[in-house]
Amino acid sequence: MIKLIRSLGRWGLGTFERLGRGHLFLMHILAGIPGLFLRFSLVIHQVYSVGVLSLLIILISGLFVGMVLGLQGYNTLVDFGAEESLGVLVSLSLVRELGPVVSALLFAGRAGSALTAEIGLMKSTEQLSGMEMMAVDPIRRVIAPRFMAGLISMPLLAAIFSAVGIIGAFLVGHGLLGVDDGAFWSQMQAKTDFYDDIMNGVIKSVVFGFVVTWIALFEGHDATPTSEGVGRATTRTVVHSAFAILGLDFVLTALMFGDE
């Protein structure tokens, strides 16, 4: 019994310690961001590995999610004779929820895990402490550009996901199931609000990009410098990111759409 309490206590302390370290780490990153504007090419190169390399999976998943939404939505709506509302159904589900959430989950799996592994390996091969000894702060030189890149890439990827998804739903709805294209777009435009729906979706994706990149970089930086440690850290990135995304999505949704 005492043992249980003790290990619970140790676990709790450990968690708080990590939380604290994670926040200090974040402060350090944020302090490094202004300096990046002088060396923006560092960020550009990271946007390539964080954003561009995630594009393919986002495009394909977005297209298929949209197509499935089109099919499923049609089958449900047609029973009420409301298949013209397919556009609304698809655009609201994608723009408000699926776009930001699914693309963030994919981003965590594709880019987040790669970031953790990269940073963890740099740590375990002493590249980070090598930099420190060359009087180069690795958090400013290595971590902050990656953080910035995540912050830039995530909303763009989410927007691409939603746009491709809507096109996919249109292809299925109009091309395959014969929904009137005028009704599809005009109903969608009438019911989708730029500020309430689209901007809120963008805000969500910025928040997710912030959190996922932060988690990924912290896990890499905090990893035990062994192959096993880096492997575990990579797993933790994906799991913690998924929890963070889903939890935050609930909170953000309640805040944004709660009073309607």
């Binding site: 390539y48 655009s91 723009v95 763009l156 927007a159 969608m188 435009q189 689209i198």
Partner: peptide
């Protein structure tokens, strides 16, 4: 790399623009 990143950002902004003009009431 820079060109590809530029294209990526352009595509992302185009997607946002499409959402704004074609999908929403903006």
């Amino acid at each position: 790399t820079e060109i590809i990143v530029g294209m990526f950002v352009a595509v992302g902004i185009a997607a946002l623009f499409m959402l704004a003009m074609k999908v929403s009431n903006l």
